[in-house]
């Protein structure tokens, strides 16, 4: 599992780790019962402070996404994929909300926003159709 940590994007680093693990589970890059790298390995690979990784893993355990398997490390729980897919949807909703907030702050009116969203959806679905054919 490879993390892309950007310390300067305003989201705390432990939160970035939490999110990326959740996304990896949601899209199947991490499977049920699979182990995540140890704290030390994860810290080393992504060059972040080990304590930050500890904090991220603790939060993932509290959320029921990882559980500790005695003697071996932390593994993805059986409920994790469902949970993570829901969380992923929530995060995307939040991102969408902040985009719409930004548009509203800049006096873009609702119809214009709707048109933009429609156009983007159209654009994406055409592209995915093209890549399939």
């Amino acid at each position: 599992m490879i993390l892309h940590i950007d310390p300067s994007n305003g989201i705390p680093i432990y939160e970035q780790i939490v999110r990326q693990v959740k996304f990896a589970i949601a899209n199947g890059a991490l499977q049920v019962a699979e182990h995540v790298p140890s704290v030390r390995d994860m810290a080393r690979i992504s060059a972040v402070n080990p304590n930050t990784v500890v904090r991220a893993y603790r939060e993932l355990q509290n959320d029921g996404i990882l559980k500790s398997i005695r003697g071996t490390g932390l593994a993805v729980t059986a409920e994790a994929p469902t949970l993570c897919r829901r969380i992923r949807l929530e995060m995307i909703q939040q991102r969408l909300r902040s985009v719409i907030e930004e548009a509203a702050q800049n006096q873009v009116d609702w119809d214009e926003i709707r048109q933009l969203v429609e156009r983007e959806i159209q654009h994406q679905s055409e592209r995915s159709r093209e890549s399939k054919s």
Partner: peptide, 13 residues
């Protein structure tokens, strides 16, 4: 630079 950073992480770990 990355190698330095990683050895620092090791020391901290």
């Amino acid at each position: 630079r990355r190698e330095f950073l990683q050895s620092m992480v090791d020391v901290a770990a």
